[in-house]
Lab assay of single mutants.
Amino acid sequence: KQVQVGDEKYTFDTPEEARKFAEKVAKEKNLKVTEKNGNFHVE
């Protein structure tokens, strides 16, 4: 599963790991997490 933050992409083995990372980054940057096709976008 992938997490996209701006132009950066991070790959994780499980959706749970990806979601945790996305939520942590979103909180730090005051952004929101959206899920698209099983991948997460922080925007």
Rank of each mutant, 00 (worst) to 15 (best):
K36Q: 09
F12V: 00
A18S: 02
A26D: 03
Q4V: 15
E17R: 03
T34N: 09
L31K: 05
N30R: 06
D7P: 10
A26S: 05
T34S: 09
D7H: 12
G38D: 05
T34M: 08
K29N: 14
F40E: 03
E28H: 07
Q4F: 15
K29H: 14
E43A: 11
F12W: 01
N30H: 09
A22H: 01
V42R: 00
P15Y: 15
K9E: 08
A22R: 01
H41G: 05
V42N: 02
F12Y: 02
G38S: 04
F12S: 00
E16V: 05
Q2F: 15
E8C: 12
L31E: 06
A18I: 00
T14H: 06
K32D: 07
N37C: 09
T14S: 12
V25F: 07
E16Y: 06
E35P: 02
Q2R: 06
N39H: 12
K9Y: 14
G6F: 11
E16C: 08
N39S: 13
K36V: 14
E35N: 09
T11A: 08
K1P: 15
T34W: 10
R19L: 10
T34Q: 07
Y10L: 04
K27P: 01
E28M: 07
V25G: 00
P15L: 13
Q2G: 07
G38K: 03
R19V: 06
T34K: 08
E28V: 06
F21Y: 08
L31Q: 09
E8D: 12
E28W: 06
E23Y: 14
V42K: 02
K29I: 06
V25P: 00
K36C: 13
K32C: 12
K24F: 10
V5F: 09
Q2C: 11
D7E: 11
Q2H: 14
T34V: 14
K24T: 11
E35A: 05
K20R: 13
T11H: 11
K29S: 11
Y10P: 01
T11I: 13
E35T: 09
E8M: 14
D13R: 09
A22V: 04
N30C: 10
V33D: 04
V5M: 07
H41S: 10
N37G: 11
E43G: 14
E28S: 07
F40G: 03
A26M: 03
R19I: 07
Q4L: 15
A26G: 05
G6R: 05
K32W: 09
E23Q: 09
E23A: 08
E43C: 07
K24E: 11
N30W: 05
P15E: 14
V5D: 04
E23M: 10
K9T: 15
E17I: 05
N39G: 09
T11K: 07
K29P: 06
A26L: 03
Y10Q: 02
E23D: 10
F12E: 00
F21I: 00
R19M: 08
V5S: 03
D13K: 10
Q4I: 15
A18N: 00
Q4N: 10
K27S: 12
K27H: 11
K32L: 10
E35Q: 09
D13P: 11
K27L: 13
V42H: 02
G6S: 05
Q4P: 00
N39R: 09
K1T: 15
K32F: 11
A22D: 00
G6Y: 08
Q4Y: 15
E17M: 06
E17L: 08
F12N: 01
K36H: 12
K9L: 15
D7K: 12
E8V: 14
Q4S: 11
E35G: 04
E8I: 13
E8Y: 13
A18H: 00
R19S: 05
H41N: 08
